[in-house]
Simulated assay, not measured.
Amino acid sequence: MKKVTLLLALSLAGFSSFAQNNDTNGPVGVRSSTDYGTGSTGSRNTGFGIKGGFNLADVYGDDKKNFTNGSNYKSFHAGFYGQYGFNNRISIQPELLYSRQGFEGNSTKTTTTGSSTTTTTVNERRLDYLQLPVLVVFNIFDNISIHAGPQVSLLTKVVEDGKERKIADEGNAYGYSYSSFDYGVAAGAEARIGPARVGARYTAGFAEMIKDQNLASTGNKALSDIKNSIFQVYLGIGLTQ
């Protein structure tokens, strides 16, 4: 985690220095962030584009300790963003993202079929979300900005140890259900060179991921008080400005 953060900091510093040099004496054909055409608001921070990158996902909460041998889940996200600038400093940026995340941590579940009882251990959980963050963006410098805002997410798919399962627990087949809706906050920083952008973001979910737990079938350990925690690094490209 420290290595990823250090790499991001160095990348942002490099992008900032490179963009500033290009603003003053850069070669022909290299565009700085101020080369964007202005929209009806007179701001260069208006347009839309595509983005995608790396997810380092995990969970937090009081019941995280009840999952043993836990570790991060590494995956990806991708989608679209739109940006509307009120001026050269402040803009609003909604996004629509597909985000594959989850976590690793052992828990047991007991399944009873007739007179037969089976106990299994679940380790890896993959959760696919459609995310809608709405961010307020503030330009600290011409090519460096910070952003923060609320985010809502819809859970579309759950895979446990490579096997897809139903999000809702019907008939206590799994011992618990997953919450199909999540909400939280996102915050991060971004650097831009012309239409390209690179950034990082942390998102904390506030909704409990697991609900309707049947303690008798899940080892009598509470598992419900866990929430999404995800660090993202991404690249983006503006399609219009």
Rank of each mutant, 00 (worst) to 15 (best):
N106C: 09
D23T: 14
T34L: 13
F80S: 01
G82S: 10
Y178P: 04
Y98Q: 01
S229A: 13
Y174F: 15
S33E: 02
R165H: 13
G175V: 00
V122Y: 11
T119N: 09
V28F: 15
I92G: 02
I237D: 06
F138I: 11
E208P: 08
Q131M: 11
N214M: 03
N55W: 00
D212W: 00
T108P: 07
S145N: 13
R125P: 03
Q232K: 06
S229E: 09
Y174W: 12
N22G: 02
G39W: 01
F138W: 14
F206T: 11
S99Y: 02
S180R: 10
T120M: 09
A186N: 08
F54R: 02
Y183M: 12
P27K: 08
K74F: 13
D128V: 06
T41D: 04
I90H: 03
F138E: 03
Y202P: 06
N25F: 08
Y36S: 10
F231C: 11
F206V: 08
P94L: 03
T110L: 03
Y178T: 05
K227Q: 12
N106G: 07
F18N: 05
R126Q: 13
A13C: 07
K109F: 15
P133F: 00
N106S: 15
I226C: 05
I226A: 01
F141V: 12
F231T: 05
A19Q: 11
N22F: 08
L132I: 09
S33H: 04
V134P: 03
Y129T: 00
F18G: 09
F231R: 08
Y36K: 11
Y202I: 07
N172K: 05
G105N: 05
G53T: 05
G42S: 10
L132S: 05
D62V: 15
L215C: 01
T120V: 09
A186Y: 00
F141W: 14
Y234P: 01
S40W: 15
G171F: 07
M1N: 14
G184L: 06
G39N: 03
K157N: 14
F103V: 09
Y73H: 12
G61I: 03
I193P: 05
F141M: 15
K51E: 02
A191E: 00
K2P: 13
Y202T: 04
G236W: 00
G14F: 02
R201L: 05
S116M: 12
N25W: 06
S116R: 14
S11I: 10
L215K: 06
Q93I: 00
Y98N: 03
F67A: 02
L12W: 02
I230F: 04
G205A: 01
G194D: 07
I90T: 07
N66S: 09
T46Q: 03
A222N: 10
P27F: 07
G29F: 13
G105F: 08
V28W: 12
D23W: 12
G205Q: 05
S40P: 09
R126D: 11
I92Q: 02
G42R: 04
Q93A: 04
T121Q: 11
S217K: 01
G49A: 08
V59F: 06
F76H: 07
Y176N: 08
T203Y: 02
I140Y: 09
T218L: 00
A200D: 00
A196Y: 10
L12Q: 11
G53Y: 01
G102T: 10
G47S: 02
G49T: 03
Y98F: 14
E95Q: 08
